[in-house]
Structure formats: structure tokens, C-alpha cells
Amino acid sequence: MKNELQGQQATREVSQYIIDYPAFHALREKMERMLRSPDPRGLLIVGDTRVGKTTLAKSVLDVHPKTIIDGTPSVPALYIEIPTIPTEKSIARALMLQLDVTTSRALSEQELISRFARIAEYCRIKLVIIDEFHHFTESSQYPKLLRYANSVKSLMNRAGVSVVLMGLPSSRAILDKNQQLRGRFSSVQHIGAFAMEDTAQFNDFLDVLRALADKLPFENAQELAGELYSPRMWYATHGALGYVKKLLIEAVETSDAANRKLSMALMEKAFTAAIWHDGVGKLNPFNRNFSHNLLDEVGQPFCPDMAF
């Protein structure tokens, strides 16, 4: 029972752990400056799947939680996610729902934003983080993209809040539809996976592995950042932090609770279960016959058009 509880605690800690590597830290500091700025600012953060965008947002929210000051609510930062099939009212409605405010469906988008502007002043909201923003650009034609762009512009103008947009690289398309919005979001930052060929980035990747190894229940967990496992961890995750956590959680959950030890066999099994069900034999980074080729071909997990 004790070993099982240790395993459960380890998976929670790995899942929730925020690793403040240099690029992540720089973006978080930029968002902190936006919170402190008296003038509304815009920032677009783009990156592929599982590189840490949502983790970045939540790290800011953790530092600035909702509180009560002098008897009134204080909500320094507000976070919403855009649904897969958005509407023109998606932003305004999501903001109101996040604040537990019920609104009539008959209200227009501009009426919703006006109401939010009053609430934002009352609740001292300084920063709005809009995640999964690429859903606005998927299968949307020019007229809709223009209206979505105007929604963001209205939010900044009328509510007086800074806005961080987060999404896949396709999110950039919406800035092309509105010159004024493009001026507000002149700062476009990329958050990406760690590159193996870049010495500094790969060293950061090793630091991440060492930090996560401290959370693992394996007696030889620090070997994760060693010569045997670290390059295989990179191939198995393409250097994306979200995949690293997913793989390690699977390894903990499938390991023997009575004798937890990091092994190639364990990681091979975890990769197939958590990352790619067809990743067997020489296509599995933890197999002794692995070819050390990138798993980015069509049908493989890190193919640009098929990543999951």
C-alpha cells in the first residue's frame, strides 16, 4: 500500500511540476510585466502541441490567484480556452462563465463585452489569457476571422485589460486580418520543443529530466539524464515537455510497485502505451535496435500534420 501511494504521489507531482527553464522563465516574466503595466498590451504565444503553453498560463495563475481585498473580489489574471467549434460570442461568454456570471443568450457580443468591462474594473482584472486560440482560424473564412479579430480588439479597448493569445502557429493568421490588432500584438513569441542539435537547448532538456527524476519513485531515477536514457527520451518525445511528462507518468503507473526501477524494458512498454501504439521494435526509442531516426514521417507520432 505504501509503495502504491508513493507511485500516486509521484504521478501527481510530475503532472503538476512547473520547470522554470530559461525560455519558459522569459515568457513568464513578460506576462508578469503585462500584469503590472497600466496600458493594455497584447502578446501572441505560438507553439506546437504539448510544448508547455497551458503550463505557462497556469504558472501565472498560480502566482496571482483569485482573492478578496477590502471585501471585493480581486482577479488579477483570468484564463479561458476557446472551444473546438467557436462562435463569435465564444470569448465574451467564456469570460463571463469563468467569473460565474450568468448572461442571457439574447445579449449581443458587444453587450457581453460591455458587461465584462464593468466586471473587469470591479474585480481588478489586469490580464486575460485566451488559450487554444487557433480554433478561431481553423476552417474560418475571411469575414469570420475579421469579426474574431474585432472581438479581441474590443476586449482590449473597452475592458482595458492586457491579452495573451496562445495557440498553434496557425493562430498568426488572425493578425493578418486586422491591422489595428496586428499593431497591438506586434510581440509574437514562439515556445517550442527542445532541439537536440542545439547544445544549449539540449542541456536545458537534461536539466528538465534531472528535475523530473527527483519526483520519480525509481531507485535509479537519475539515470534518466544519463547517456543511455537522455537521447532516447528526446527521440521518444521530440523534446516536448508535455510528452516527457506523459511518458514518465505511464512508466510509474505500469512499474512494479514492489520493486520500482528504471529500465529500458519499462520505458519501451511505456512509450508504446503512452506515445505511439505502433512504436515497437526498431521504431521504439527504448528498443536496443532503435534506428535513431526522427519519428516524424507520415503515420508517426511527430509528423507535423499528425501530431497528437
Rank of each mutant, 00 (worst) to 15 (best):
S186M: 06
T137S: 12
L209G: 05
Y142R: 01
V208Q: 04
Q179F: 08
Y229A: 10
E4F: 14
F202Q: 09
V152S: 00
L247K: 00
L228C: 12
F302H: 02
L35W: 06
L247P: 04
T49S: 13
P301M: 03
A120G: 04
L266W: 04
G192S: 14
L266R: 05
A221I: 04
F218I: 01
V164M: 08
Y17P: 00
E88I: 11
S90R: 09
E29F: 06
L78F: 02
S90D: 11
E138Y: 02
S108A: 03
A274S: 15
K215S: 07
F116V: 02
K261Y: 08
M196G: 08
Q201R: 04
G42P: 01
T102P: 04
A273M: 14
F194Y: 13
V75G: 09
K144I: 03
H135N: 14
N3G: 07
H238F: 11
R172F: 12
S170P: 10
I249F: 05
P40H: 07
N287K: 08
P86A: 14
K246A: 08
A94E: 14
N178R: 00
A270E: 07
I125N: 06
A195I: 02
F202C: 09
D204L: 07
A149I: 01
M96A: 13
L283Y: 08
V128Q: 00
K153T: 01
F218V: 01
N203F: 06
E121N: 09
G52K: 02
I18S: 05
L5G: 01
D131K: 05
E4W: 12
H135Y: 13
W234M: 03
L262W: 00
M1R: 11
T55A: 12
G226P: 02
L181M: 05
R93M: 15
L168A: 05
G226W: 03
M1N: 15
E268S: 11
R12M: 12
S139E: 12
S186L: 09
L146N: 00
M306I: 02
G242A: 03
Q141S: 07
T103M: 14
E297G: 13
I85W: 15
I82H: 12
A26T: 10
R36M: 15
S37F: 08
N287I: 10
L146E: 04
T254A: 15
N293I: 13
I130E: 03
G226K: 03
C303F: 11
E109T: 11
A258S: 14
I129S: 06
K66N: 11
D20Y: 03
V63F: 10
A307W: 06
A77T: 08
A200H: 04
V161F: 11
P304I: 03
S114A: 08
L95R: 09
V163G: 01
F302P: 05
H190K: 13
A173N: 09
L5H: 09
K58P: 00
D214Y: 03
V252D: 07
D100E: 15
T102Q: 14
S170C: 12
R12P: 00
E227R: 12
E13D: 07
K2F: 13
R158T: 10
A211R: 02
R260N: 08
R118L: 08
L5T: 10
I125V: 10
A23R: 05
M96Y: 04
S90H: 07
R260E: 10
I82C: 11
L262I: 04
T84A: 15
F302W: 06
F116E: 05
